[in-house]
Structure formats: C-alpha cells, structure tokens
Design a protein around this nucleic acid. Structure first.
Lengths: 212, 212
DNA sequence: TCATTATGTTTACAGTGTAAACATAAGAAT
DNA sequence: ATTCTTATGTTTACACTGTAAACATAATGA
C-alpha cells in the first residue's frame, strides 16, 4: 500500500521495460506535440506510438481507434482553452463589456497560437453538438468552453433586450463572427499587413455594441 | 481536321479502350461526386481512378499529385459557386441591400448543400491567400468568387463611410460572420430546431445595417 | 512507314489503421 | 511462495493509401 509508483514511466526506471506505466497520458501529450509539429495531415497513431517508444499496436489497449485518441486530445485541449479564457478574469469584474471583449480576444489568440487545435476540433467533425432552439442555444456539458462563453454572453447581451431570449441572436452573431475570423486566419486565407488583432478588436467591439 | 473526337470517351466507343479520351475532366467530375458521397475523409485517388475505370496510376499522367487534383476540383467548385452567386442578380438591381442579403444567403445555401466543397476549400489549406492591407482587402484573381463578393461589398458599404477605406472593416465583419456561421452549420456543430436561414437572415441584415 | 509522344497498365514500396495471436508482468487468490 | 487472472505490451498480418519506375499501346507527325 505504501510504496506505489515503483514501476512507472521509463524515466524513473533504469533501462527499457515491458510495461510503460502511463501510456494513455503520454499518448495524449505526445499526440498534441505531434499535432503541433506536423499538423493534422502528418498525424498518425504509429508516429505517436513511436514517440512513446512503444509498438504501433500498443495504443489499442487504451484507445479503441485513432478517433478515440483524438477525442481524448479534444478533451485535453478544451481544458486548456477554458483555463486560458478564465484566467484572472476577475480583473474585469465591474466592466462586462471589456470582459467580453477580452474573452473574445483570448479565444482568437489561443487558436492562432495553436492552429492545429482549431483545425482539429472544427475541421474534422469532432466538435460537440450545440442546439439552437426557439429561445436558447445550449450544450449539455456545463464545463465546456462554449458553455463558459454562453454564460457570459447571456448575462452581457440580456441588457439590450426586453424579452428573455433576445440575447440568443446576439450571441450567435458574435460567435459566428469570431469563429469565422479565426477560421480565416488559422487556415491561412487571410493575411494582414498590420496586426490582425486591431481589426478583430474593432469588429468585436461593434458586435458588442461598445463605443470605440 | 474535320472529323474530330472519333476516339473519345468510352461512352462514344464500343468496348473498352486503352485510351480514355478525357480522363482529366472525368477525374474532376467523378472526384466531386466522390467528395459528395464519401466526404473528404473517404476520398482517395485510387477510388476516383476506379470510378473512371482506369488503373490507379493513370491519374498521374494528368495530375502530379493528389493535391493537384484537389486544386483542379477547387477551381471547378469556385466556378459553380460564382455561377450560383451571380445567377439572375439583375433582379435586385435597384435594391443593393436586398442584393447583398441575397448573395450572402446564396453563399450559405451553396455551402450547406455542398458541405464537402466548404470542408475541402477551407479546412484543408486550399483556400486562396487574401491580404488585408491598411485600406483594402484583395485577391489577385478578379474572377474568384471572393472578388465578386468584394466588389459588391465595396459598392454597398461605401455609402456608410466618408473615408475611402471604411468599407473594408464592414466587409471583413460580414464575411467573417457568414464564414463562421457556415463553418458551424457545415461541420455539424450547430443544429437548429427551426430553419437556420431565419437566424442567418436576421444576422446578415443587422450586419448590412438594414432595417428589419 | 517509322520515330516520337501522350497516355495508359503493372509492379513495387513505404506508410497507414486495425485486428488477431502471442508474451510478459502485476496483482489477487490459493 | 506459488499459481491464476488480468492488464498491457509485441509480432504478424491485411487491406488500404500515395507515389514512383518500368513497361505497353495508341495517336501524331516526319
């Protein structure tokens, strides 16, 4: 009971060992690295396995398919994104407009700095399903980055409407715009001679009905 | 000189023939069909070759790589898109706002009906480079669908600005929004209980500064 | 008629995801 | 301690993929 982790992770042990120790987590870590280095096209299960010093079939003990590894990576990324969005957000407590602007900018920055995250999540059918009903726009998972954005947007946009569901259209408009700009920048369609964030900021402010 | 096309396309000849006749064009046509049927993931050179009743290496006489076939498909799609955007546009001659709205809706419809076109062009790094300078947003190719949109947007948005380049920001905002909404619908992120076009229309009208 | 060129086919190879059979090590039960 | 079971590796195999090289055939032009 007392001495655990005797046989974990090759680093802690001397030579090579039959059992890896924590292959699942290392597959996810190395998978993200590979995604970062070689992009979505260059990504392969076998390369990740090799990066973990493990035979190409070993991953199948932890993931039933390549796609399942992707889902695990997806989850890990969404956690990082959520952290990035929420970090030190209380600085903007009494300025909801600036807070919204800040979150939008953070989202864009995160994706631009980690383009393969975006590429992976939104360009390969691995995004979570979100449903727009008559008066709400909802994802089951409360912890998902989207739900964070939704919560803030609802609180923010509600002030501009009398009816209970008016914020939905505003949020949809804002979210589409951010998402589109992110896509165009991340996939290399749009190049800026100056700083792209200037354009983004003006655009977002207008969408947030903020005065410039 | 007179009798040409004697030996073209298997359809016109009796049995099978060594030379196909117009493999290049049929690869593009069948390629688009395959894209439509199996999606970008299920797409392969060998399947397209098989669909053309031709050995798997034959395409290499016309395309140096899979990517080059994709570029040809890209071009073909952009032509179809342009046609869809411009068809009967003179009906809206004296109502620029409605015309812009109509073009945006057509773009969205086209992509929703042909999701793999969008997936292919914008999710696989095959989109054309567009540069945003201080006072313009430009693509060299005048015939590209983007350039069509740019022309109309410039004419339309200019009325709201005194300075010569004010329209750029407006166009960027509109384009990002359409593109983002399209992405979210096409990749299945966003599901609508009602008609998605209602939401889209309200959104676009607002972006066009049109009264509802 | 014959050489050249365009355009096919066959064969080959390395890389992919995945499944099956096998091997080993860890932990539980005896 | 020894043995059984289970978790987690490895090897081998297969059907795909893109692509290159060698070869074959048919159209073209001298």
């Amino acid at each position: 009971m007392e001495r655990k982790e005797i046989h974990h992770t090759k680093n802690e042990m001397s030579g090579t060992m039959y059992h890896h120790g924590d292959l699942k987590q290392e597959m996810i870590r190395k998978g993200i690295q590979l995604l970062y280095k070689e992009g979505y096209e260059g990504f392969s299960l076998r390369k990740v396995a090799a990066a973990c010093n493990v035979s190409h079939a070993a991953p199948y003990r932890h993931f039933r398919s390549k796609d399942e590894l992707f889902q695990a990576i997806n989850l890990e990324i969404s956690i990082r994104l959520k952290e990035a969005l929420l970090k030190d957000l209380e600085h903007y407590r009494d300025d909801p407009g600036t807070r919204m602007l800040e979150m939008c900018k953070r989202y864009l920055s995160f994706m631009v700095e980690n383009p393969d995250y975006f590429r992976y999540i939104f360009m390969t059918g691995h995004a979570r399903q979100i449903v727009v009903t008559g008066d709400d726009i909802l994802l089951e998972d409360e912890n998902h980055p989207f739900s964070i954005g939704r919560k803030h947007a609802r609180e923010y946009f509600s002030r501009f409407h009398e009816n209970e569901s008016g914020w939905v259209q505003d949020f949809l408009a804002l979210w589409s715009q951010i998402q589109g700009l992110t896509l165009l920048i991340v996939n290399g369609t749009l190049g800026f001679s100056g700083n792209y964030m200037d354009y983004a900021e003006r655009m977002i402010c207008e969408q947030l009905k903020l005065l410039l």
